[in-house]
Design a protein around this nucleic acid. Structure first.
Lengths: 92, 92
DNA sequence: TCCACTTACGCTCACCGTAATGATG
DNA sequence: CATCATTACGGTGAGCGTAAGTGGA
């Protein structure tokens, strides 16, 4: 599992469509599809239902989405915090 | 930034020593040292002070450590939660 | 001079994109 | 047959390990 996989998952969950999510991530469909498959494989359970219209979250996917958003938010917070502390006057 | 980098950072912060952290992670020193350097480069500020004894956290490193632990804990929680939901009787 | 981190360097394999294939209404 | 997702496949770059280099007490 990698942060890239998590970002890919969130994009697909929000778009409900691998193609649109791929454009949003500036990526082509196959690698993005592979990210989702790898995640499902690693977690041992499907996260999406495949429909003719695209991808629909399963309950396991809904649960993962909440955690995924928290992880990404925490990463952003870490970056902001460190940049602030690292530039602080008490650097010495 | 990747989860691997974050795990590497936590190990070095806890051991205070790249060599020991590397053994703990089943990795050799150079890649681990590169993880830390990449992290510092990406964040734009050093996280450790290099001493003759090893690595000592700077204030920016202390701040990052708290976030890093939360990120890794959240990842673990995500995995556990999804595995539980994915195996639940209401899988239909 | 020892000890620890870092840089050099060659190699492998993970990952991307294009193209082909499957699946479903 | 149109629309998505997935699999095949070749090429490149990220990342590993061994070995050499650097720096401080």
């Amino acid at each position: 599992m990698s942060l890239t996989h998590i970002q890919s998952f969130v994009a697909v969950a929000e778009e409900g469509h691998v193609g649109r999510a791929a454009r949003r991530l500036h990526l082509s469909q196959p690698p993005l599809s592979r990210h989702i498959l790898a995640l499902e494989d690693e977690l041992g359970t499907p996260l999406f239902e495949r429909t003719p219209r695209g991808m629909r979250l399963l309950p396991a996917g809904e649960a993962f989405l909440q955690h995924a958003r928290r992880i990404l938010a925490e990463v952003d917070a870490a970056v902001l915090t460190v940049r602030k502390v690292g530039t602080a006057p008490t650097e010495h």
